[in-house]
């Protein structure tokens, strides 16, 4: 596979309404423990007119994933389609990946008697983990494996405004380009009026 056919997330800030539906869907679909937010909706420039927008943030499945570079136990692996995954049986929960990540994506559930951090958990782009695909262990550790079933990751699938895009990076950029080019087209700026709404077509 070529570099351009990596799977990527993209959140269209013109469409995201900050409803948090994606993060709720994610937490429910993968039955995440409380305190673990694989996906989070953030609002930038909050309260500044014209500049405020919301974005849905999770692991961005970076091409040059810094988490993978710093991991002292090499628990990360990057699938051929560009999905960055990790092995929880190897992870030691040192949190170096969190220090390297620009997005604050790695999560650490509270674990053990003194509330110390457990092994890392992050967005898998609904592609599970290294365990046997769709096995019970995989589901317990990493959540659903929707990719193996040919389904879209749950966050993007349920996004009501289709702001959150996921797929082959070329496809995603094509969709976004089309959206930008067609912005403003076919938008009625005048009221319809009775003759348009109920009148015959020409």
């Amino acid at each position: 596979m070529s570099e351009s056919s990596r799977l990527k997330f993209y959140c269209d800030e013109n469409r995201c309404i900050g409803c948090d539906g994606c993060s709720v869907a994610c937490a429910e679909a993968h039955e995440l423990p409380s305190g673990v937010n694989r996906r989070k909706v953030v609002t930038l420039n909050e309260g500044i007119e014209g500049l405020e927008y919301s974005l849905s943030i999770a692991c961005m499945h970076c091409t040059d994933a810094p988490c993978e570079e710093v991991c002292p136990v090499d628990c990360f692996y990057i699938r051929e389609d560009g999905i960055v995954l990790h092995d929880k049986d190897i992870c030691i929960g040192c949190a170096y990946c969190l220090y390297a990540c620009p997005f604050g994506a790695p999560q650490f559930p509270q674990d053990g008697a003194f509330g110390t951090k457990g092994v890392m958990d992050k967005c898998t782009m609904c592609a599970g983990g290294p365990e046997e695909t769709n096995s019970h262990t995989e589901r317990e550790l990493y959540g659903q494996n929707r990719i193996s079933e040919g389904k879209v990751p749950v966050c993007a699938a349920m996004c009501s405004t289709k702001a959150l895009l996921v797929g082959d990076s070329n496809e995603v950029s094509n969709i976004y380009r089309e959206r930008v080019l067609s912005a403003g087209h076919g938008v009625k700026t005048q009221p319809y009026g009775w003759n348009v709404a109920y009148g015959s077509k020409k």
Partner: peptide, 18 residues
């Protein structure tokens, strides 16, 4: 052991060391 965690294969042994 933590610094050379990949040499020890990570997992429960390295976790115990942490």
């Amino acid at each position: 052991v933590m610094m050379f965690g990949s040499f020890f294969g990570g997992g429960s042994f390295v976790r115990l060391c942490t």
